[in-house]
Amino acid sequence: MKLDISLAPETLFYIGSVAISNSFFWLLVLTFFILVGVFFLNRSLKMRPGKVQNVFEMLLAGAFDFVETTVGSKSLAQKTFPLVFTLFFFILVSNLITFIPGQAAVTIETAGGVVPLFRAIIADYSLVFMMTMLSVLITQIVAIYVAGPFRYLGRFLNFTSPLNFFLGLMDLIGEVAKVMSLSFRLFGNIFAGEVLGAVMLFLFPFFLPLPFAFLGLLTAVVQAFVFAVLTLVFISMAATVSEESEAA
């Protein structure tokens, strides 16, 4: 038996010249189910909540309270909450869904050999990169909107003294490094979890992977939380730091 691990997702089939990978296919399936689930949940909302609605209301209210205490004001929380909670919920669901047993066994015959039909979608770097770019770009847009374009540029290109110029350049590098740190953290954790599970299964089947599966479960929840919270912190920093420099 040979361990079969690849960084890039496997191609299932082609539409025209566009390769459809297994992670992309799985992403579409998952998005469809989330949308349908939310649609029916939305349709069945009542003033006197049932069991499902109660659970979701508690979850949402708790999350909103957490966002409010983090950003510090209710209006800002109302603006950032939809994005942050969507990111959290999507990453959480797509991580947890990989713990349904047996899906790695479903394979499909393609031109490039036998490949698994499903793949943990967070273990595909392109999706994580897109989500990170989304979060970082929104942070920059908020910063530009709050500070105005000139003061925003002035943060990075400061010619008042050599030290300020150097610090401005460091700020610029810091902004670019956000993309790497945020995306590698999520991708690395989930992909490493997959690889770890495969290696442990290879060493001693059925029993040895169990504690690592539990660790993976913890990682799945914590990383979804961390990604969302860091996005939130970046946005709230972009919205408030500029106000402070205005006062100074």
Binding site: F184, G188, N189
Partner: peptide, 27 residues
């Protein structure tokens, strides 16, 4: 929960090393 978040962020340098390792091994 705050400890878990702090740990996840502390862990990230190890994760970078891990990503590099996986790239060396499998890519």
């Amino acid at each position: 929960p705050l400890m878990f978040v702090a740990m996840a962020i502390t862990e990230s340098t190890a994760i970078y090393a891990l990503v590099v390792t996986l790239i060396i091994l499998f890519a």
